[in-house]
Simulated scan of single mutants.
Amino acid sequence: MSFSLGPVGQIALGVADPDRSEAFYGEVLGLRKLFRFGGLVFFDCGGLRLLLEPSSEAIQPGSPIYFRVADIALARRELEGRGLTFIDQIHLTAPMEDHDLWMTFFTDPDGHVLALMMEAPKGWKPQPKASG
């Protein structure tokens, strides 16, 4: 029998203030909180657990975390309505043969880079906000 790794089960981010980060990931991003154990806070990211753990060291943001969404423009408007500030515009990252990859980036309270990503049909373009 050959050895193989299974899917990634959990990723961890160091945070300065677990309460602040719990509010950000739960209330602003809308992730489902699984549980909290002391200062450790666990969220569900579509079957992958996100662990927020307090760090007494200076927070060193690592590789971005990309959240897949069905409609990047709608998701961005919803998050902006919750007070989230993005650091760029929705942009085409990679035109593929059969679809296009669109992204937009933001940071959490500790400076971890996060992104929304959408695999869209060829030729899709974000629609401007409706004025109202």
Rank of each mutant, 00 (worst) to 15 (best):
G39Y: 04
P54W: 09
G46H: 14
R36Q: 12
R36T: 09
G81C: 11
F3L: 13
E27F: 00
D100E: 15
S63E: 11
P121T: 03
A58N: 08
E27T: 08
I90D: 06
E22Q: 15
E27Q: 13
G9F: 06
F37T: 01
G14D: 09
A70H: 02
E27N: 13
L92T: 02
V8C: 13
A120V: 04
H99N: 13
A58H: 13
G9Q: 14
G9W: 06
F37S: 03
P64Y: 01
R32Y: 08
H112E: 00
T104A: 06
S4L: 05
D19R: 08
R32C: 08
L34H: 09
E57D: 10
L92H: 10
R20C: 12
S2D: 13
G132S: 12
S63R: 15
Y25Q: 08
L40C: 03
A16D: 07
V28R: 08
L40E: 09
I65C: 09
E27A: 11
R76P: 03
P18M: 12
F37P: 00
H112G: 00
I65N: 03
E119G: 06
I72P: 09
P128V: 13
T93P: 03
G6Q: 08
E57L: 04
P7A: 14
E57K: 10
F35L: 03
S56R: 11
V113E: 00
H99D: 03
M118A: 14
I87M: 11
V8N: 08
F43Y: 15
A58C: 04
R68S: 07
K122C: 05
L48Y: 05
M117W: 02
D98Q: 04
D88F: 03
F42E: 07
A23E: 11
L13T: 03
M118W: 06
G46V: 14
A75I: 04
G26M: 09
L51P: 01
F86Q: 01
L84I: 04
P54M: 07
H112M: 00
I65Q: 13
V8S: 12
A23F: 12
H112D: 00
G39H: 06
F24T: 00
A70R: 05
P18K: 08
I65K: 07
G39D: 13
R82W: 15
G81K: 10
A75T: 14
L34F: 05
D44L: 10
P54R: 13
S2C: 01
K33A: 15
P121H: 09
